[in-house]
Design a binder for these strands. Structure first.
Length: 200
DNA sequence: AACCGGCCCAACCGCCGCCGG
DNA sequence: CCCGGCGGCGGTTGGGCCGGT
């Protein structure tokens, strides 16, 4: 049985204090990232390694871009999600300064709701209730399809509906077990083809 | 002013893949 | 080849905030 990583007595949980942040920053600036397991003890932090890694990657790293998402970032997230599904780390890799956790939160709190309002299933990026055109959601979605710029979400919906752009029709499934695209492959793709077909 | 419900988001949890022994 | 440790990932939680009543 795998032991929980944070079962040690006296390990802090919850929100990080400024002092803890500073200790972590100081340590990483001196010693660099890595060996998260032993980092807390070495840095004098009563945290588990995972917690330190998460805090550093999501908030303390110098190149993190905090604050609201720009319109183009939002559009990019939607397009990448249509292509990659819930593979947040891959999506984050395409958005400099943004983290997977931040994108995941933004998706779940903002974009998902926005798509639902537009009558689009956020899981597969298809119209909801196409068989019931009289429903308000479908009517709104149909309207959106004809006039994609008719509200503040400036997204070309035709992209989301093109199945040829989705390598795995079940790409929106939560599991990454049957994920045929590895991080390395994605990196290779991004190097060899900086512009995804989506953006044409 | 008090209460309530919904939203936001930082952080935790548990699983999986990779890698070294 | 097998096993265990570690890092990474996505899903989920829960506390705080905010607007409405």
């Amino acid at each position: 049985m795998r032991k929980p990583c944070c079962d040690e007595e006296g390990t802090n949980k919850g929100t990080w204090s400024k002092q803890e942040d500073q200790k972590l920053i100081d340590y990483i600036q001196t010693h660099g990232e890595g060996c998260w397991r032993s980092l807390p003890k070495a840095a004098g932090l009563h945290r588990c390694g995972k917690s330190c890694r998460l805090r550093w990657i999501n908030y303390l790293k110098p190149d993190i871009k905090l604050g609201n998402f720009a319109q183009d970032e939002e559009e990019l997230i939607i397009k990448l999600h249509a292509l990659l599904g819930n593979r947040w780390s891959l999506i984050a890799g395409r958005l400099p300064g943004r983290t997977d956790n931040e994108i995941k939160n933004y998706w779940n709190s903002h974009i998902r709701r926005k798509l639902m309002k537009m009558g689009i299933d956020p899981e597969n990026h298809k119209l909801i209730h196409l068989h019931r055109p009289s429903s308000s959601a479908a009517a709104a979605a149909t309207s959106m399809e004809k006039k994609p710029n008719s509200n503040n979400l400036n997204l070309d919906l035709t992209i989301a509906f093109d199945p040829s752009l989705t390598p795995n029709p079940n790409s929106a499934e939560p599991s990454h077990k049957n994920n045929n695209i590895t991080t390395k492959e994605m990196d290779h793709q991004s190097q060899s083809a900086p512009t995804l077909p989506l953006f044409n």
